[in-house]
């Protein structure tokens, strides 16, 4: 094994890259005309988000996000969107107000987060990642069961809804 001495800080590069991917894909999700592309870029949002989770040291959450959210949920959305016809072109509305509202909320959140959050870099990775599986099974078994139950019931609900034939 040899040690790599990177000239560029690798972690910062990954962070910048995935943050840029996240924000650009989010804008594309909203602004692209094609629904399929929008769903695809939602997948990119989920992917970049998972990378950001992993960067913060929460590998298990990142994997869970990748499997459940990106792998299953967004694929399901993409799959369903493929079945719709392409949207007919709508005439552009006046959207500056919405833009201002969005920007205002974002600013408020950022300022609020800044005031709550005492900016002091923490050192080291969280060590609780190792104990998590045991803790889930031992202490939060009921919650886990409830999540599975909810998932299953909503899945069945979704299937029933989608299967129902149009009566008229």
């Amino acid at each position: 094994m040899i040690e790599f001495n990177f000239l560029i800080p690798i972690e910062d590069t990954i962070f910048l890259f995935s943050a840029a991917l996240l924000l650009i894909s989010a804008v594309l999700v909203i602004e692209l005309r094609s629904h399929v592309y929008a769903a695809f870029f939602l997948e990119m949002v989920g992917l970049a988000n998972a990378v950001l989770f992993a960067l913060q040291g929460l590998a298990l959450i990142a994997i869970f996000q990748l499997v459940v959210y990106v792998g299953a949920t967004v694929t399901f959305i993409l799959f369903s969107v493929l079945m719709f016809k392409e949207a007919k072109p709508v005439k552009p509305r006046f959207k500056l107000l919405d833009l201002l509202i969005g920007a205002g909320i974002a600013g408020l959140l950022a300022v609020g987060a800044f005031s709550i959050y005492k900016v002091s870099p923490t050192a080291g990775k969280p060590s609780l990642d190792v104990t998590l599986p045991e803790k889930i099974v031992s202490e939060y078994g009921l919650a886990l069961f409830l999540v599975f139950f909810t998932l299953l019931t909503t899945l069945i609900e979704a299937l029933v809804l989608a299967r129902r034939e149009v009566s008229s």
Binding site: A19, V27, G102, G104
Partner: peptide
Amino acid sequence: LLISSVLFGIGVYG
């Protein structure tokens, strides 16, 4: 958190 806020703004706009 900053990224999260910007993302939230984009979502609200959408």
